[in-house]
Design a protein around this nucleic acid. Structure first.
Lengths: 324, 324
DNA sequence: TCATGTAGGACAGGTCACGACCTAATTGAG
DNA sequence: CTCAATTAGGTCGTGACCTGTCCTACATGA
């Protein structure tokens, strides 16, 4: 094997990431160096901020523990595939507050993922799509590939070409300088400078198709209002419909709270075995209805009436299904 | 900064993982070394099997691309949290075929996750639990912590102590030598040698609570039938109920197939806009009912009758909810 | 008390890493 | 076409650093 120092350190890091204890002698044998060198290497890792814990005495050994800095993760093939699949599944709906980071991590991983693993990810990925994907509840499905391509182009300052379907169904080709990829509410948006239109635009990512980075780099311009979030608010959120959901559950407040997405807020107890939830949501009501149905306990919809309609429709669909 | 070679290589690796092009001069300035040294470092990385692609000419630069080996992933805080949250969410239900790898990756990551990040993961994790968690559909919820503790103890050959709730509700404390953690069907099982009982046992992980590794190492014994999967089949699967699901959908076969978990198999088209699914499942029927409800299109349950009952019950629950 | 592990100092010898300098090849823009 | 910016790689001298071999000290469990 390669016998020089940096390579050995990386290898050592990978060994220590296995959740077990490694006696120095075993490490020495594995890496074909003396025990003294292992001790020195361990010191070096500690200097780098990766705390290697050593338990002394017989049955002792080294292991990597949590420290201040996160060491580079050394993954085997299967683990890498598992992470990629997990992130792709989560990319569409992820947990609020980490959507962007999730996509960044995925882009980072896929950039270096060997192609043999990429195939496995692709074939496994189809499995998860159904339950989780339909993020807006209105068929606005986003392919994970799209998100990662946009994320890479954005952070790499590469021009981006894609075709876009406007609200009226018209498809156009766009050449843009992507500025930011943001997840707002239940949707993804790309803020970019449209070169042909010579102006800033926000694009709904679920309407983007066939995106690819042209490879041409560009120097970032100033975004008009100075900040992406501000710009979003000014251009997209105007008039996004919100609803005042009001529901009573026949279950303890604690249990409902545990099973409810936190964006809904917390229900207030109205008895030992019932609670009431009032929440302002800007999600699609169909999605809210499903969410409530999945919750488990019985519940009653007080409002809005559109939500009651959705619930009723879902209910009758199921009743019809069972009647067959 | 640390100025020695291994540290610099790791730093370089982390820079190159950003999806963008890095001119050598910029890298040189960042790492406080000469351009020549950068070129040598790039060579070193290539020697290690991490292909650094260089585009020549003006506007050129280095970037890390997919190669044969997966380089150690250098993540920032947010990305690490995103991955941890994603894996925890996925740990319960993951995609068939990668459950174990998923848990291994999670254990590896959590082993080295700084505590400040661990807190963020914990607070975010609650968000995802509802929709995805209830894996068996029968309230058999598994905490991700439990899975990672078991995984670590298993691969580290550490003795494991936990309390276990038997089928009849009796709680006992167990001291075991964990042998394997397997995901079968829709459940997790731990195959371990029970020291007090002095025999091999399989434990349902959803019935395990408060597990912790004692730290004591043990030498793995021979598992009786020689193979974990075999042992599983012999002890657990006997008499697991299966159902013959038979459902007609009012939607094209292709669309239904796309949104259905692959374990259900593929529906066969019975018309341009309808298809029929016959599948043998060993899941809980309540779970199947939810799955069907979430699918979107209208459907009709032909059998089994228990499934129709579940669907009907869900339907009437929703109808009642809407009537409020 | 002993075996087995980590911790770390001192030293000698050899290696290798670095910077400085050089030339070649490639690409895009003007 | 020409020029500028970039990667690619050779050579050389100096000095730092890395390694293995000693050694002692200390912690731990049987």
């Amino acid at each position: 094997m390669t016998t020089d120092t940096p390579a050995r350190l990386l290898q050592l890091l990978s060994l220590l990431q296995t959740p077990r204890e490694w006696p120095g002698s075993e490490l020495a044998e594995r890496l074909q160096v003396s025990g003294r060198t292992i001790r020195r290497d361990v010191d070096r890792l500690r200097d780098l901020g990766y705390p290697v814990q050593a338990t002394m005495g017989a049955e002792g050994g080294y292991r990597l523990v949590a420290g201040k800095a996160l060491p580079p993760l050394v993954l085997d093939d299967e683990e890498a595939v598992a992470i990629a699949v997990g992130l792709r599944a989560g990319a569409g709906h992820a947990v609020e507050g980490i959507e962007e980071a999730s996509v960044r991590a995925l882009a980072k991983l896929e950039q270096v993922l060997p192609s043999r693993l990429r195939h496995r990810v692709k074939s496994l990925q189809s499995a998860t799509s159904s339950l989780v994907y339909d993020r807006g509840g209105d068929g606005a499905v986003i392919a994970p590939e799209t998100l990662t391509v946009l994320a890479s182009a954005t952070s790499g300052h590469e021009r981006l070409r894609f075709s876009y379907e406007a609200g009226d169904g018209a498809r156009t080709r766009r050449l843009t300088e992507p500025y930011r990829l943001v997840s707002a509410g239940r949707r993804w948006y790309l803020i970019a400078y449209d070169i042909d239109r010579d102006d800033w635009r926000t694009f709904r990512v679920d309407r983007v198709s066939d995106p690819f980075a042209t490879g041409a780099r560009f120097a970032p311009r100033e975004v008009p209002t100075g900040d992406a979030a501000e710009f979003m608010r000014a251009t997209v959120w105007r008039g996004a419909p919100t609803f005042e959901v009001d529901v009573t559950f026949r279950a303890p407040a604690a249990e409902v709270a545990r099973r409810l997405p936190p964006s809904f807020g917390a229900p207030e107890a109205t008895g030992a075995d019932s609670c009431r939830l009032r929440a302002t949501v800007q999600d699609s009501l169909e999605w809210v209805a499903m969410r409530l149905a999945l919750l488990g306990p019985d519940f009653t919809v007080h409002g809005p009436s559109e939500l009651a309609e959705h619930v009723a429709r879902l209910g009758s669909r199921l009743t019809r299904a069972a009647a067959g």
